[in-house]
C-alpha cells in the first residue's frame, strides 16, 4: 500500500488533481504500469529488429568460416559437400534480375492504375475499382505460385518461344532451352504481386496533390494529361519513387511464388527465357529440407544478405517519404 503511494507521489510532476487520495494513487500505479507496458512493447519491437540481425550473424559466421569458396563471388551452392562450397553470386543475380524486371513492368502499370482511379474513373466507381486492385494483394503468394506453376507458366512457355524466335538478337531473349519456368515468368508474377502496393501508395500521393495546383493548370487551358504532367506528376515524383522502392523490397524478398515457378538450374545466365535461374529467397525454401548443419548456416548467411538488401531499400524508400513530408 505504502509503496503504491510512493510511486504515485514520486511521479506527480504534472500535479493535475489531487482530489481522491487513495483512488488517485491506484490510478497513478495503473498509469505507471500501463505507460511502461506500452513503452515496453515499442522497445520489444526494436529489440526484435536488433535480434534478427544478431542471430542471423551468429548462425551465419560458422558456416562462412567453413566455406571453401568466396561467399560473394562463388556461383555454386554446395554447403553440404565436404568441404562446403557455396556462394550467393548466382542467387543474388537472379534476385536482382527478377526484381528489377518486375519493377520495370509493374511501375508504369501501377502509376497508370493510380492515375486511372484518381483522375479518369467515374467518381462513384473509383473506390470500388481501387478495392479490386487491392484484392491482388490479398491473394497469398502460395496461390500465385500454384497458378504460376500449373497455369500461367504453361502460357509463358509459348510467349517465351515467340520472343526467342523473333527477338533472340536481344541478348536477354537469346539462348536455348526456352521454357515456362524461366526468370521472365517469375518476374511477371512478381510484377503482378507488387502492382497493388505501388499503385496504392501512388494513389495516396496523388490524393495529396493540392487542388489549387490542379485547378491552376486547368485554368491555363491544359488538357487532362497536360494537367497531370504539370501539377500531378512533378508533385508526386518522390512519392512514386519511394512506392517503387517499396515494391522492389517486396519483390526482392518474395519467396514462395518464385520458388514454385522457377525450375532451378545452376549458373548465371542473362537469358531470361531459359528454364531455370534461382533467387536467394527461393533457394532457402527449396534447399532447406536437405540442409545439414552447415547448410542451414549457409542459408542463414544468404538470408542475412537478403535482410541487409531489403533493409537498405526499405529505409531508402522511407527516408524519401520522410524528407518529402518535411518539405510539403
Amino acid at each position: 500500500m505504502t509503496s503504491e503511494i510512493d510511486v504515485g507521489q514520486r511521479t506527480d510532476t504534472a500535479g493535475n488533481g489531487r482530489a481522491g487520495g487513495r483512488r488517485m494513487s491506484t490510478g497513478r500505479l495503473g498509469d505507471q504500469i500501463f505507460a511502461h507496458s506500452a513503452r515496453g512493447s515499442g522497445v520489444v519491437l526494436l529489440a526484435i529488429m536488433a535480434a534478427i540481425a544478431v542471430f542471423l550473424i551468429w548462425r551465419a559466421v560458422p558456416a562462412l568460416r567453413a566455406n571453401e569458396a568466396n561467399f560473394l563471388t562463388e556461383q555454386e551452392w554446395n554447403p553440404n559437400a565436404t568441404p562446403p562450397v557455396f556462394g550467393i553470386a548466382q542467387l543474388a543475380f537472379g534476385t536482382l534480375m527478377s526484381s528489377f524486371l518486375a519493377l520495370l513492368m509493374a511501375t508504369p502499370v501501377a502509376i497508370g492504375i493510380a492515375l486511372f482511379i484518381s483522375f479518369y474513373a467515374p467518381r462513384r466507381l473509383a473506390s470500388g475499382l481501387g478495392y479490386l486492385v487491392d484484392l491482388l494483394a490479398a491473394v497469398p503468394s502460395i496461390v500465385y505460385g500454384l497458378w504460376g506453376l500449373h497455369y500461367f507458366g504453361t502460357k509463358m512457355d509459348d510467349v517465351g518461344r515467340f520472343l526467342n524466335d523473333y527477338f533472340s538478337w536481344i541478348p536477354l531473349f537469346g539462348g536455348d532451352s526456352v521454357g515456362g519456368r524461366s526468370l521472365l515468368t517469375a518476374s511477371v508474377i512478381l510484377a503482378i504481386m507488387i502492382l497493388p502496393i505501388i499503385s496504392s501508395i501512388t494513389r495516396e500521393v496523388f490524393l495529396q496533390v493540392p487542388t489549387a495546383n490542379v485547378e491552376a493548370a486547368l485554368a491555363l487551358g491544359a488538357t487532362r494529361w497536360e494537367t497531370i504532367r504539370m501539377a500531378v506528376l512533378p508533385f508526386g515524383r518522390s512519392g512514386m519513387i519511394s512506392a517503387a522502392m517499396l515494391g522492389l523490397g517486396r519483390a526482392l524478398g518474395e519467396t514462395i511464388a518464385v520458388a514454385m515457378v522457377l525450375s532451378t538450374a545452376s549458373g548465371i545466365s542473362i537469358h531470361i527465357l531459359k528454364d531455370g535461374g534461382n533467387t536467394i529467397a527461393a533457394n532457402i525454401a527449396n534447399s532447406f529440407a536437405e540442409a545439414g548443419e552447415t547448410g542451414r548456416g549457409a542459408l542463414i548467411a544468404s538470408g542475412l544478405v537478403l535482410f541487409v538488401i531489403t533493409l537498405i531499400v526499405n529505409m531508402g524508400a522511407r527516408a524519401i517519404v520522410a524528407r518529402r513530408k518535411e518539405f510539403v
Binding site: I300, G303, N314
Partner: peptide, 29 residues
C-alpha cells in the same frame, strides 16, 4: 520516432528472413 521508423522498416522484412530468425533463435539457439 525511432519506433515509428522501424515499424515501417519491419513491414518490409521478407517473410523468409523472419523465418530464418526464428530458426536461428528458437530452434537452433
Amino acid at each position: 520516432r525511432v519506433i515509428t521508423f522501424f515499424v515501417d522498416v519491419m513491414t518490409g522484412i521478407p517473410s523468409i528472413v523472419a523465418g530464418l530468425f526464428i530458426l536461428a533463435f528458437w530452434l537452433l539457439a
